[in-house]
Amino acid sequence: MTLNELYKDLDYVNHSREKRAYYAQLIVDNPDAMRHVLEILFMVDDPRSNRAGWLAEFATKMDITIILPHLDYFTTHMHTVYQDSALRPVAKICEYLTISYYKEKHPETRKMLLSSHKNCIIECGFDWLITDQKVAVKAYTLTSLYHLGTETDWVHPELKRFMEDGYHTGSAAFKARCRHVKKWIEKFNKKQS
C-alpha cells in the first residue's frame, strides 16, 4: 500500500468502530503501511490527519508491535499534533506503549521503547497537561506519566502537583482519573519503602 493509496482510502474511514477496525486490520496485515499512516498523521494541518490517528490507534491496540519499528519517528513528531481529534489517538498510543512496557512487560516493547522515546513521551505529556486539552488526552497522559514515573523519579511529584492544582476545576472524568492515579502512586510509594 503506497502513501497515495492510503491517503485516498482515508476518505472512507469515519468515526464508526467498524470502519476504523476494518482499515486498522489492513494496516496490521500490511505492517509496512504503518509508516504511511504516521506520515499522514503528522501532516497536522491536513483534514485526514485525524483519520490516520484513528487508524494508528486501532492498529496499535490490535498489535502493539505494529508501532515499535516507528518509535523514533512517532516520538520525535508527536509534539507537532494539535488538532483534538488527532491528539487523542496520539495520547492513547502513548498510554498503550507505557502499559505494554511497564504493566504487561511485553518483551518486544521492553526492547524497543528506549529512554529517548520515554523522555519524549514525558515532555509531551506534561505539555499536554498544562495546555488546554480535552479530558481524554489528559486522562491517557496521566496514566502514561504514572507508569513512566515508576522509573523516572521526578515525574510522580510533578504529576501529583499538577493533579492537585487542576483537581478542583477539572471535569468529573478528569477527577476520577486523578483519584485512580493518586492511589497508584501511593501504592507504588509503599512498595518502594
Rank of each mutant, 00 (worst) to 15 (best):
M1N: 11
Y7V: 00
Y7E: 08
V13G: 04
H15A: 13
R17F: 07
R17C: 04
E18Y: 09
R20I: 14
A21S: 14
A21W: 01
L26Y: 09
D32A: 12
V37C: 06
F42K: 05
F42Y: 11
R48T: 11
G53C: 05
E57C: 09
F58E: 14
M62P: 02
M62D: 13
P69E: 08
H70P: 01
L71R: 06
L71Y: 10
F74K: 02
H77I: 01
H79V: 07
T80I: 00
V81K: 03
D84R: 05
A86K: 02
P89Y: 10
A91Y: 06
K92W: 09
C94N: 13
E95S: 11
P107K: 15
K111T: 06
L113S: 03
S115C: 03
C120E: 15
I122P: 02
L129E: 07
I130N: 15
D132T: 08
D132I: 04
Q133W: 07
V135D: 13
V135W: 15
K138N: 09
T141S: 08
S144K: 04
G149H: 07
T150M: 15
T152L: 10
T152P: 02
V155Y: 05
H156G: 12
Y167D: 12
H168I: 02
T169S: 15
T169D: 15
K175V: 05
R177N: 09
C178S: 05
W184T: 03
